Simulated scan of single mutants.
Amino acid sequence: MGYPTDLLSNRSIVKHGKYALITPQGLVNNVIPGFENCSMSILGSPKMGASFVDYIVTMHKGGKNSQGFGYEGVETFVYCLEGKIKARAKGESFDLEEGGYLYCPPSEKMYLENLADGDSRCFLYKQKYRPLDGHEPHIVSGNANDNEGYDYEGMVNVNLKDLLPTDDLGFDMNFHILTFDPGASHGYIETHVQEHGAYLISGEGMYNLDNDWVPVKKGDYIFMGPYCLQACYAVGREKMSYVYSKDCNRDPLL
């Protein structure tokens, strides 16, 4: 909300290095070289305390990145929220509609183009890759709607979907979708070294972030830093779901 119809207010909270809730109402557009006819907002970044960068991108009609996204040593990931996007990497082409995604290893650039007559929207990510001797990541594409989920830590009312391989040490991160039935929750308040960047794709909830209870809903972005206490309850009448990143498969550096 804001001037001239109301007081200036915003639900967003930023506690650098710990956690952040960023709502869509306060987002500003950023100019990102290489992206044409796109409205882009930077969500999580090292300036906040994250080891990665997350973006929300609205690709208008004819929007594209013909120069490629990513560079040597940086892995990238895109998740299509709505519309239709053509993604290319290593000479392959992937048509991504709602739920579609593409991961590119650090040796490959990602090229994006809007195929819809109107806007398409996507959640975009990049991170420096941490190599591991004897292991290499590879291009992965799919659609979350086709992926089989499973009970999260044995709870039948919380569903987890993996978007990247979980048994391949070539990957130093993963993307997941966590979905809560109305009234469902985590089994306990988690405390761990991994950090997350999460984008809510449906529903509403109450999220415990470093022991602050914060209301969240569809369209919100959450950054959770290392060792940030975290858990949530789903509230409302529909399922609460979010797509999120997690670093994994590496021993912490000294």
Score class of each variant (00 low, 15 high):
residue 60 H to E: 13
residue 60 H to F: 04
residue 61 K to Q: 14
residue 61 K to T: 14
residue 62 G to L: 02
residue 62 G to C: 07
residue 62 G to S: 05
residue 62 G to F: 04
residue 63 G to A: 10
residue 63 G to D: 08
residue 63 G to L: 02
residue 64 K to N: 07
residue 66 S to L: 06
residue 66 S to M: 03
residue 67 Q to I: 03
residue 67 Q to C: 03
residue 68 G to N: 03
residue 68 G to M: 02
residue 68 G to W: 00
residue 69 F to Y: 14
residue 69 F to R: 03
residue 69 F to A: 00
residue 69 F to Q: 01
residue 70 G to M: 05
residue 70 G to Q: 05
residue 71 Y to P: 00
residue 71 Y to G: 11
residue 72 E to A: 13
residue 72 E to I: 07
residue 73 G to C: 12
residue 73 G to K: 14
residue 74 V to K: 11
residue 74 V to N: 03
residue 75 E to T: 07
residue 78 V to P: 12
residue 78 V to T: 15
residue 80 C to Y: 04
residue 80 C to M: 05
residue 81 L to W: 07
residue 81 L to K: 04
residue 81 L to I: 15
residue 82 E to R: 07
residue 83 G to F: 11
residue 83 G to S: 09
residue 84 K to G: 10
residue 84 K to E: 14
residue 85 I to S: 04
residue 85 I to Y: 04
residue 85 I to D: 08
residue 86 K to G: 00
residue 86 K to S: 10
residue 86 K to M: 12
residue 87 A to R: 02
residue 87 A to M: 06
residue 87 A to Q: 06
residue 88 R to P: 00
residue 89 A to R: 01
residue 90 K to H: 07
residue 91 G to H: 01
residue 91 G to T: 07
residue 92 E to T: 10
residue 94 F to A: 05
residue 94 F to D: 00
residue 95 D to K: 11
residue 95 D to F: 13
residue 96 L to M: 11
residue 96 L to A: 06
residue 97 E to T: 15
residue 97 E to C: 09
residue 98 E to S: 15
residue 99 G to L: 10
residue 99 G to E: 05
residue 99 G to Y: 08
residue 100 G to W: 08
residue 100 G to K: 05
residue 100 G to E: 05
residue 101 Y to R: 11
residue 101 Y to H: 12
residue 101 Y to T: 04
residue 102 L to W: 06
residue 102 L to Y: 06
residue 103 Y to W: 14
residue 104 C to F: 08
residue 105 P to N: 02
residue 107 S to Q: 12
residue 107 S to P: 01
residue 109 K to P: 08
residue 109 K to A: 09
residue 110 M to V: 02
residue 111 Y to C: 01
residue 111 Y to K: 01
residue 112 L to G: 04
residue 114 N to L: 10
residue 115 L to S: 02
residue 115 L to D: 02
residue 115 L to A: 05
residue 116 A to F: 10
residue 116 A to L: 05
residue 116 A to M: 04
residue 117 D to S: 13
residue 117 D to I: 05
residue 117 D to M: 11
residue 118 G to A: 14
residue 118 G to E: 13
residue 118 G to T: 09
residue 118 G to K: 13
residue 120 S to F: 09
residue 120 S to K: 06
residue 121 R to E: 12
residue 121 R to S: 13
residue 121 R to P: 06
residue 121 R to G: 12
residue 121 R to N: 13
residue 123 F to W: 15
residue 123 F to A: 09
residue 123 F to P: 13
residue 124 L to D: 03
residue 124 L to K: 03
residue 125 Y to F: 15
residue 126 K to A: 13
residue 128 K to S: 14
residue 129 Y to A: 10
residue 130 R to F: 12
residue 130 R to P: 12
residue 131 P to K: 09
residue 131 P to Q: 07
residue 133 D to T: 15
residue 134 G to C: 10
residue 134 G to W: 06
residue 134 G to R: 12
residue 135 H to Q: 07
residue 135 H to L: 00
residue 135 H to S: 04
residue 136 E to Q: 11
residue 137 P to R: 03
residue 138 H to D: 08
residue 138 H to S: 13
residue 139 I to G: 00
residue 140 V to Q: 01
residue 140 V to H: 00
residue 140 V to W: 00
residue 141 S to T: 04
residue 141 S to G: 03
residue 142 G to M: 09
residue 142 G to N: 12
residue 143 N to A: 08
residue 143 N to K: 03
